[in-house]
């Protein structure tokens, strides 16, 4: 287990591993999301209380669950990056932040759209909503901090510290509906009580679980892809990247064996892409 872990932490091994895994995660994730959302919108019955308005749950709940999971994952990767100084974990931290911010924003927007018809208000300052908004700002802080440093390693490690300190907000978001009397309803699927005694009819629950699982797989695929790009940019001077890039260009030029390297590799490994990333960081080419 440990040797496997260590080998995976080496950038070229990770790159090849991710190259193989990401497409499958993406296909499986999109398929599950597709079926889950389709069943949720058209097959599942309307709710006895909320009617059709409850169907936004099939987007809102996966997004909200991911917003918390991604931040937790970022903090774990951050701890690994800081304790063992592992380059791959640093890349993992900064790669996850924009995805997490997107899911958090999605959870907030869908929550507001759900709140208006059911509660009667788009926004209330209750503990769940406020702490989720704080979570969005924490993500934005990580993204901004990453761009403030010109050295990517320093930037990533600063982000790791911020992720670690900010992670105290995650249990607050999750337990806010239990700790405080809140307008937001309690947990339908993610609490001990709910697991023992399901709070959702099976015909409604199944699509929800599918779209949730799909969202996690989709996140996995996007995260791996972003990490691959991050690794390539950081290691652009390393022999293995040059060898890869050479191979890829060769394959592209002769058009003989396009299968030698995936299209993602060609895209990301050409110098153009590397410079673009530098420009993103505000350093200029």
């Amino acid at each position: 287990m440990w040797t496997w872990f260590h080998r995976l932490a080496s950038p070229p091994t990770f790159y090849r591993f991710a190259e193989r895994l990401a497409p499958w995660l993406l296909i499986a994730g999109l398929a599950l999301i597709g079926v889950g959302v389709w069943q949720g919108l058209f097959v599942a019955p309307a709710d006895y209380q909320q009617g059709d308005a409850f169907r936004i749950i099939y987007v809102h709940v996966p997004a909200a669950a991911l917003s918390l999971s991604i931040y937790t994952a970022m903090a774990v990767a951050g701890a690994i990056a800081l304790i063992w100084r592992m380059k791959l974990a640093e890349v993992a931290v900064v790669s996850a932040a924009p995805i997490g911010a997107s899911f958090t924003a999605l959870a907030l927007v869908t929550g507001m759209l759900w709140g208006k018809p059911t509660w009667g208000a788009y926004w209330v300052w209750d503990a769940r909503l406020t702490s989720e908004l704080v979570l969005l700002f924490l993500y934005l802080g990580v993204i901004g901090l990453n761009q403030a440093y010109s050295d990517p390693r320093t930037a990533a490690r600063a982000c790791a510290w911020l992720a670690l300190v900010g992670v105290v907000n995650v249990p607050i978001v999750h337990y806010s509906v239990q700790w405080w009397n809140s307008l937001h309803q309690g947990s339908t699927i993610l609490s001990a009580e709910a697991i023992a005694n399901p709070k959702m009819a099976p015909s409604m629950l199944k699509p929800l679980l599918m779209s949730m699982a799909g969202s996690y797989l989709f996140f996995g695929a996007v995260w791996l892809r972003r990490m691959q790009n991050g690794v390539l940019v950081r290691e652009r001077r390393a022999k293995w990247v040059r060898a890869f890039a050479g191979q890829a260009l060769l394959a592209e030029g002769s058009n003989a064996r396009p299968g030698m390297a995936g299209p993602g590799l060609v895209e990301a490994a050409t110098p153009r892409q590397g410079r673009q990333d530098d420009a993103d960081r505000g350093r200029g080419a």
């Binding site: 309307a46 006895y48 947990s187 709910a194 709070k199 009819a201």
Partner: peptide, 18 residues
């Protein structure tokens, strides 16, 4: 001055509720 509806975490089709 303002009334908000608080729904719970239970979801079921109307038939089941009936």
């Amino acid at each position: 001055t303002r009334i908000l509806a608080k729904h719970d975490e239970n979801y079921m089709p109307p038939q089941v509720a009936d």
